[in-house]
Amino acid sequence: MITVGDKEIEWHEGMTIRDMLNMLEHTQFCAAVRLNGKLVSSPFFETKEIPDKSVIYLLPLIAGG
């Protein structure tokens, strides 16, 4: 199980950030997430694997300074 915001999601071996986003709605504007406190940006969504029991927050649309 992983936690995304206030939701619990079933975890599977090799699950990437992209896999996780595909399981959620309205994620087309997500360019970065916080995975266990660390930033992961969209160029790494396909490759970054999520460990089991992770806590993830989707960052708001990046708005600049």
Binding site: F29, C30, L58, L61, A63
Partner: peptide, 15 residues
């Protein structure tokens, strides 16, 4: 727009 409501991404124009 640097901290946004949790349901903001459901809006058609989240920006």
């Amino acid at each position: 727009n640097d901290i946004v409501p949790e349901d903001n991404r459901q809006n058609p124009e989240p920006a």
